[in-house]
């Protein structure tokens, strides 16, 4: 059914007999045709929920053991000992926004390429020109976005702080300029 990809391993139970195979089909029939995948989701979900519950749980249990002497000095934010002036919600380097924009587009590209490149190996086994089609589609997709990256590079947008060459030129002109 999956050509090469479906490498079916004899999934024997660790203790060497196969009782639970039947057990699995009987109880979960009510929900989906073969809800083995749903069972795997359940496992993954229990991992995520357990990990999400842990910090508040630990912090809450700790509340009973932890000393709590709120003192004026302790509650102000740490600023190397001096009194913090102004709030921390202040503007900052706007290069971060460009990174966010370009990241978003390339992250979408990676996510879209996953299903297509997944088939590449199977397309080769199917033979004929399916492999050529999948290759052409996926790498046309990749190439077009690589043009985007080259455009960013050339216009110097992804340089974090004007690249070194610019700065050197800038410093030279500063020295030559009459004070």
């Amino acid at each position: 059914m999956l050509g090469f990809g479906g490498l079916k391993l004899r999934s024997r139970c660790l203790l060497g007999f196969n009782f639970f195979q039947r057990h699995r089909v009987v109880t979960l029939e009510t929900y989906g045709r073969n809800s083995g995948m749903l069972q795997e989701f359940g496992n993954a979900l229990s991992f995520v929920l357990l990990a999400a519950i842990l910090p508040p749980l630990i912090l809450f249990i700790g509340k009973f053991f932890r000393p709590s002497f709120p003192h004026e000095g302790k509650l102000t934010t740490y600023e190397c000992g001096e009194l913090p002036e102004g709030s921390a919600y202040v503007m900052f380097n706007n290069r971060f926004y460009l990174v966010a924009i370009v990241f978003l587009v390339f992250d979408v590209e990676v996510a879209l390429l996953f299903p297509v490149l997944l088939l590449f190996r199977e397309a080769i086994d199917i033979g004929g020109n399916t492999a050529a089609q999948v290759f052409a589609l996926a790498f046309a997709f990749l190439g077009v976005l690589f043009i985007g990256l080259v455009y960013e590079w050339k216009t110097g947008d992804i340089d974090w702080v004007r690249d070194a060459e610019d700065r050197r030129k800038h410093l030279e002109t500063l020295e030559k300029a009459p004070q």
């Binding site: 357990l50 990990a51 999400a52």
Partner: peptide
């Protein structure tokens, strides 16, 4: 209080895979 559980869910949740 919400941020550490996001970080924890992100890094420990992936151990399922």
């Amino acid at each position: 209080n919400f941020a550490p559980s996001l970080v924890m869910a992100g890094s420990f949740g992936a151990f399922a895979a």
